[in-house]
Simulated assay, not measured.
Amino acid sequence: MNEGNAVSLIALIGWLILAGGAFASYKLNWKTSLKQALTWIAIFGAVFVLFTLVRGQ
């Protein structure tokens, strides 16, 4: 791991902590949080598959 990768990893961890803190501030219950997380995973997965199919042709 070079210096650039270490800085990127530290920045990524910082962004994840910041995003987690913002998400926790909504004080949602676990069921709602899980539902929202699965919805976002499905959205990004669909976009990923769409771009893969378009790019593959």
Rank of each mutant, 00 (worst) to 15 (best):
residue 1 M to N: 08
residue 1 M to H: 07
residue 1 M to G: 13
residue 1 M to L: 10
residue 2 N to V: 13
residue 2 N to F: 14
residue 2 N to A: 14
residue 3 E to R: 13
residue 3 E to V: 15
residue 3 E to I: 12
residue 3 E to M: 14
residue 3 E to L: 15
residue 4 G to T: 15
residue 4 G to Y: 15
residue 4 G to E: 15
residue 5 N to Y: 12
residue 5 N to W: 11
residue 6 A to D: 09
residue 6 A to H: 04
residue 6 A to I: 05
residue 7 V to K: 13
residue 7 V to P: 02
residue 9 L to S: 02
residue 9 L to T: 07
residue 9 L to P: 00
residue 10 I to W: 05
residue 10 I to F: 06
residue 10 I to H: 01
residue 11 A to M: 05
residue 11 A to I: 10
residue 13 I to Y: 02
residue 13 I to P: 00
residue 13 I to A: 14
residue 15 W to M: 03
residue 16 L to W: 08
residue 16 L to T: 03
residue 16 L to G: 06
residue 17 I to P: 03
residue 17 I to W: 07
residue 18 L to N: 00
residue 19 A to N: 02
residue 19 A to S: 03
residue 19 A to T: 02
residue 20 G to D: 07
residue 20 G to S: 09
residue 21 G to N: 03
residue 21 G to Q: 00
residue 21 G to W: 00
residue 21 G to K: 01
residue 22 A to P: 01
residue 23 F to P: 01
residue 23 F to R: 02
residue 23 F to S: 02
residue 24 A to M: 03
residue 24 A to H: 05
residue 24 A to I: 01
residue 24 A to F: 12
residue 25 S to L: 05
residue 25 S to F: 07
residue 25 S to W: 04
residue 25 S to V: 02
residue 26 Y to M: 08
residue 26 Y to C: 05
residue 26 Y to N: 06
residue 26 Y to I: 11
residue 26 Y to R: 06
residue 27 K to Y: 04
residue 28 L to R: 10
residue 28 L to G: 02
residue 28 L to I: 04
residue 29 N to E: 12
residue 29 N to D: 15
residue 29 N to V: 04
residue 29 N to L: 04
residue 30 W to F: 09
residue 30 W to Q: 09
residue 30 W to K: 13
residue 30 W to R: 13
residue 31 K to S: 12
residue 31 K to T: 13
residue 31 K to G: 04
residue 31 K to E: 13
residue 32 T to H: 09
residue 32 T to E: 12
residue 32 T to K: 11
residue 33 S to C: 11
residue 33 S to V: 11
residue 33 S to R: 14
residue 34 L to S: 14
residue 34 L to A: 11
residue 34 L to C: 11
residue 35 K to D: 06
residue 35 K to F: 09
residue 35 K to M: 13
residue 35 K to E: 10
residue 35 K to I: 11
residue 36 Q to I: 15
residue 36 Q to V: 11
residue 37 A to W: 13
residue 37 A to Q: 10
residue 38 L to F: 12
residue 38 L to V: 07
residue 39 T to S: 07
residue 39 T to P: 01
residue 40 W to M: 13
residue 40 W to G: 09
residue 41 I to T: 10
residue 41 I to N: 06
residue 41 I to Y: 05
residue 41 I to V: 12
residue 41 I to H: 04
residue 41 I to P: 03
residue 42 A to T: 11
residue 42 A to G: 08
residue 42 A to Q: 05
residue 43 I to N: 03
residue 43 I to D: 00
residue 44 F to W: 05
residue 44 F to Q: 01
residue 44 F to N: 03
residue 44 F to L: 09
residue 45 G to N: 01
residue 45 G to Y: 01
residue 46 A to N: 06
residue 47 V to A: 11
residue 48 F to C: 01
residue 48 F to L: 09
residue 49 V to E: 10
residue 49 V to Y: 09
residue 50 L to S: 05
residue 50 L to G: 04
residue 50 L to N: 00
residue 50 L to K: 01
residue 51 F to W: 11
residue 52 T to G: 08
residue 52 T to Y: 15
residue 52 T to P: 04
residue 52 T to V: 12
residue 53 L to F: 12
residue 53 L to Y: 11
residue 53 L to D: 06
residue 54 V to F: 09
residue 54 V to G: 03
residue 54 V to N: 08
residue 56 G to F: 14
residue 56 G to W: 15
residue 57 Q to P: 11
residue 57 Q to D: 14
residue 57 Q to V: 14
